[in-house]
Amino acid sequence: MSDLNTSMIEKYRSSFLKEVEANVEEGEWVKMCMQCGVCSGSCPLGKHWDHPPQEIFMMIRANKREEVLGSDSMWMCTSCYNCIARCPRGLPITHIMHGLAVYSKRLGLTPKKQPTAEFSQIFWDNLMKKGRVNELKLGLSMNFKDGFGEGVKNAMANQKLGQNMMKAKRMNPMEAFGGHGVKSPGDLQKIIKKAQEIEESKIQAAK
């Protein structure tokens, strides 16, 4: 199924729901949603989503695989936990949103240039280097992610923000030279690598 128009015979089949259960963190909760809409109404960003959580859950059950996994929606979640606090059915909605994002990324279905996705990657790469986030480099990478010209524009626009962060000691210009880190970043990287291997073997086993 390459196009978004799920053929009729596939509609409302539970194959995608089962796939989500097997592959998405807390995915087994999706079937328990009773479509009350409280999550969508509680989400401070819900208005801006193509498909707020309630809809995402219904789409999964309607077998709209490509539409869900290729969607921008779950990337919009800011982890405010409003929805979780309010869901009468106790669905861990925030976690499911993140789980769906991870799964779509793993399958390479994330929309190109999705800012949250890009930021997450930059954040991760930054963190992995020394085991601590280098704010200065993180900021610069974000500004310049779309090339030099855009970067200069972005940097100018965010100048004030940068200065304020420095004043408040939230960002240190010295970080440009090496920057702080954990005692032995190599060990951390090994730990992470191992964890990734375990995760990968789990994914393989599930297939």
Binding site: I9, Y12, S14, L17, K31, M32, M58, R61
Partner: peptide, 30 residues
């Protein structure tokens, strides 16, 4: 729900007979 019954908020308007039946409905959530 636990047993994987899909509950869909929808109003059926028509069933078209055939070898396989087609249920036309309005999905009220989507």
């Amino acid at each position: 729900q636990q047993a994987m019954v899909t509950f869909s908020k929808g109003i059926a308007s028509e069933v078209v007979a055939g070898d396989s039946l087609t249920v036309k409905f309005q999905d009220k959530i989507l």
